[in-house]
Structures are given as structure tokens and as C-alpha cells.
Design a binder for these strands. Structure first.
Lengths: 248, 248
DNA sequence: CGTTACCTTGAATCTCCTCAATACACGTGG
DNA sequence: CCACGTGTATTGAGGAGATTCAAGGTAACG
């Protein structure tokens, strides 16, 4: 069972400098002008560290925060009245959390930490000022939103059209590549704090069936996955198996 | 088979005035300041009318355009290498097309007209200027993107967790409500230019199976659907059947 | 050393798929 | 006017794939 811890922001704690922000160092993002850096630094409320299992946002909730992930893994989920749960997406370093909350007035899904997570916290009402303030901060937010739309569409194709093993292959490949893009892969090894239940809730199959197909996939030797240690062995063949239209 | 017609923009044709824009009249959007109106009017290239079956965008393509739907229905699709197709979302009046193309450099999905469609055409490189130019045009784009993320998440829950009849109920309900929100429902009747094959490609089931479950659903009398004429009879019960968390 | 979370496996059942055939409405050309 | 094609809807039989339920197994942790 996920714990019921909720997000708390410790104000006034020692903040690192935005200039040395870990996610800026990734090179995944456009470099900020000094002026933008100062602007963002003023908007920021503080940093928060949350433990595995924490509910960072709750579906339907109006939170005062808009968040950026500095480190750790989270899942975004939606739950049906009878308890069936779908994992919508995963979030890692560099991802934005709570855009819906800031723009559409309330959260459309829940967000839960899978391991210990560090977050950068903004007041959601300041989002508007990122659009007033000329240089492309608002554009960056749109870029992130478009990016996530694209990921959601990919997941939708998977769940709508792919077979069980294809879905597993596609998900593992996607998570691995996203992790690699933000420097979380050393050699060919990533730390995935994901259980088979998460896997099942993402690809839309029962846990039992997911387990059986995963076991068979493992035997093919394209990757090794035990506990949270995931090792990619043959990425190209895994991508083929996933039915990936194009290459890395 | 969908025809292979492609989008062509007739420049310099008589344009209606942005002040009398049909989608502005809907009341779905925030009213524009006169200054914003003039700004948008200058950005616009022209209007385009495309016939049913036209491929407005092609997956992987870099188109010079960013579009707004004035009237008609379209589908956004992604196709796997072996031909399996997933309908990602539907677009109607007020929706934005080609954001990925403008922001992420190329289209991640195809867009096809289901009936005759009127479009408002912008040059995609001008998107940036909507963010430079202070009052909230850029914010509106983000709002639309967040909105669509929310729809995609809903579809993902459906395809991942719901049974066949629940998925059908949910999709019909969603399309009906979106149509109603932009004034396309008179009485309880909407014109849905959708075949059972579209339905099947959206909910992730085979055509045969979709047909059988739909037939059973029809017998329950919650709606009437023949050809393109869709009549909602018991919206509340259909919503219950769809496993909708909250009410209209 | 018992608890808890996660993983594994089997048997019976049901959902959904494939394949194939048929029906119907429409428009076109002979 | 009818014959024909095409797109859409419908239906049935048989088999693959997924579900549920239930039982064990393993490893980590207090």
C-alpha cells in the first residue's frame, strides 16, 4: 500500500543556486539567459524532499504549487470509482508537475513518488508571469507540455494496439531512454524503482499475466532486470520487438 | 481507403474578419483584447477548406503550418510499422493542430479530415512571436496543450482499464460532450461522422468485437446511433456505465 | 523470526481475435 | 433500369490470449 504522506514544503531552507541547478547541467534544456535565471530564482519558493510513497498531488485537488523534478522517480495515475488504476506517465529529473493544476485549475491525476524525490517548488499563480516576462520561459512550458503529449500518445498506441510483450518491451525501452537522456544510465545500467505491479498498471494487463509475459521476455536475453537494477543488453532488438517506427 | 489528398492553402482568398470568427463566438475561449485580435489577424495566412479524407498532416512531416479548426471533424492517428493504427484523439472547432510540428520540429502523428473541414492557417514560425508579444496568447496555447493532455490521459485510462462496453460508452459520451461544448448539438442530437472502424481504432478492439458490443449497448436504449446521426437519450446512465468519476 | 512486499505458478473460465461469409446502402456506368 | 463495385455493418465458429482465484516462494526488515 502506498503511504498517505502528503507534500510539505519547507520554506527558507538552504537553496542551491539556480546557476548550479542539477537539471540545467543536463544539457537537455536550452541555456538560460542570466536575466531569466535571476527571474526564475525570484519566483521559486524553495526545495522539497519527499519520501517514497508520498502523494505529491491528488486527483481533483487544487494545490498552490507548481513543481519541477530535480531527482527521483514519480508516477502520474488516474483511478476509476471502483479502484482500477492506470499509470498515465512517469516523471524524472527535468519534468514539470502540476501544470494542469496551474492552468486548468485543478489536478486531473495524482502524482506519487516511487523513491526519494527532490523537487523545486514554485507558486502556481506565478506561472502567468512567466508568460508576461518576454524571453521564452512561457515557451519552455509549452515545449514541455507538447513533449508530454507526445509521450502520452505513444503510450496510447501501445495500450491500444500492441501485444503484451510488445508493450513491456516498449515501456522498458522508453523508461531506459528517458533515464539515459538525463544522465541516469551508467554503462548500460539504470536504476528503475518500478515493480511488476507498476508495469501491469501501465500497460493495462493483470499482474499475473504481466508476470508471465515478462518472464518469457527475460529469457530472450535482451535485458536483465532484477530488483531495481535494469541492464540493457540488446537495445536494437528490443526496439524492434517493441515495434518502434524509427531508431534512437 | 482514405484518399491521399493533402493540405493546400489558398492564399489571398477572402477572409472573414477575426472579430466575427466563428470559434470566438462560442464563448469557450477567453475574450480577446482588441490589440490581440489585430495581432492574430496579422499573423494569419489564410483559410483552407479540405474535403473528407484529406491528410492534413502526416506523421514525421515538417509542415510550415499551424492550424486552428473552424468547423468539421478530424482524427489524429499514429500507425505502427505493420499497419496497426491507433486514433489518438479527435479534433473539432476550436482545436489547435500541429503544435508538435511548431514546437517539436515535426509531427508525431497524422491528422485526417473525417468530413469537410474549414481551417484557419498560421505560419508555424510565428508561434514564437505569440510568446514574445505580452498578453496571454502564449498562455492560451499552453492552456490548449494542457487541455489535450488531460483528454489523452482520459483515453489512456479507458484503453488501459475499461471493458469494451465501458470504452464505447466513454468515447461516445466524450465526443457528444465536446460537440455540445462548441454548439454542435441541437436538442440531444449530434452529427458524428464516425464509423465503427474509427470507434474500434480508438478503443483498441477489433472491428468485429466492437460491433458486437456496440449492438448490445444500443439495445440498452441509452442512445440511438444510425449513420452519422447520434441521439443522446440517457446521458446520466451512459456516464455511469462509462465509469465516469465525476458528473457533467 | 515473523511480517510484509513482491514475485511466481497453475487451473478454470471468459473475453476478444481471426477468418469468413453475408447483408445493406449508395453511387456509377452500361 | 439494372448490374456492379465499394464502403459499411452484421454474424458465427473456433482458437488464442487474458482474467481470476488461489497457493506458494523469496527477500528484506524490524
Amino acid at each position: 500500500m502506498p503511504s498517505s504522506r502528503r507534500l510539505k514544503v519547507a520554506g527558507g531552507r538552504p537553496l542551491h543556486d539556480c546557476r548550479t541547478c542539477p537539471i540545467r547541467a543536463l544539457g537537455t534544456f536550452r541555456p538560460f539567459a542570466p536575466e531569466e535565471l535571476r527571474f526564475v530564482e525570484r519566483l521559486r519558493i524553495g526545495e522539497a524532499t519527499v519520501a517514497a510513497g508520498t502523494q505529491v498531488f491528488q486527483e481533483g485537488e487544487k494545490s498552490p504549487y507548481l513543481l519541477t523534478v530535480l531527482s527521483g522517480w514519480l508516477i502520474k495515475t488516474k483511478t476509476l470509482p471502483d479502484g482500477r488504476r492506470q499509470i498515465i506517465n512517469y516523471a524524472i529529473a527535468g519534468d514539470l508537475l502540476g501544470l494542469q493544476n496551474a492552468v486548468l485549475d485543478k489536478m486531473q491525476h495524482s502524482v506519487e513518488a516511487l523513491d526519494d524525490v527532490r523537487l523545486c517548488v514554485f507558486p502556481k499563480e506565478k506561472l502567468w508571469s512567466m508568460f508576461e516576462h518576454p524571453p521564452g520561459l512561457g515557451f519552455d512550458v509549452t515545449w514541455l507540455a507538447a513533449q508530454e503529449k507526445s509521450i502520452l500518445a505513444d503510450f496510447l498506441v501501445s495500450v491500444g494496439q500492441r501485444s503484451a510483450s510488445e508493450r513491456i518491451a516498449f515501456l522498458l525501452l522508453t523508461l531506459f531512454r528517458r533515464a539515459r537522456a538525463v544522465g541516469l544510465v551508467e554503462g548500460a545500467i539504470a536504476d528503475l524503482p518500478i515493480t511488476q505491479e507498476h508495469l501491469a498498471d501501465t500497460i493495462g494487463f493483470s499482474l499475473a499475466h504481466t508476470n508471465k509475459r515478462l518472464a518469457r521476455l527475460k529469457r530472450s536475453g535482451l535485458f536483465d532486470w532484477r530488483g531495481s537494477r535494469f541492464e540493457m543488453i540488446d537495445e536494437r532488438r528490443l526496439a524492434e520487438l517493441a515495434g518502434q517506427p524509427s531508431s534512437p
